[in-house]
């Protein structure tokens, strides 16, 4: 019974740590992707507005 308990405990702990790590990595990568994309978007937006202004002048 004690052995069963420990086997289960260790199994679930390791599995949960791994899964948690996967999810955490996934989220942080997603966030980074968003940051990069949004910074690209603002850059292009600034460029577009700059070009528009130049065109008006």
């Amino acid at each position: 019974m004690v052995y069963l308990f420990w086997a289960q405990l260790i199994f679930w702990v390791i599995l949960c740590i791994y899964t948690y790590d996967l999810i955490r990595k996934n989220q942080s990568l997603n966030k980074r992707l968003e940051v990069i994309q949004s910074s690209l978007n603002t850059q292009t937006a600034e460029q577009v507005s700059l070009e528009n202004r130049e065109a008006k002048q």
């Binding site: 791994y18 899964t19 996967l22 999810i23 990595k25 996934n26 990568l29 997603n30 980074r32 992707l33 990069i36 994309q37 690209l40």
Partner: peptide
């Protein structure tokens, strides 16, 4: 499920590095 999550991570890494490469960040 885990495999899919793991591959997703690699995909994300690839996308980030390809964007960086294109934009020269």
């Amino acid at each position: 499920v885990l495999l899919k999550q793991r591959i997703d991570i690699e995909d994300l890494k690839d996308r980030i590095s390809s964007i960086r490469l294109e934009e020269g960040i």
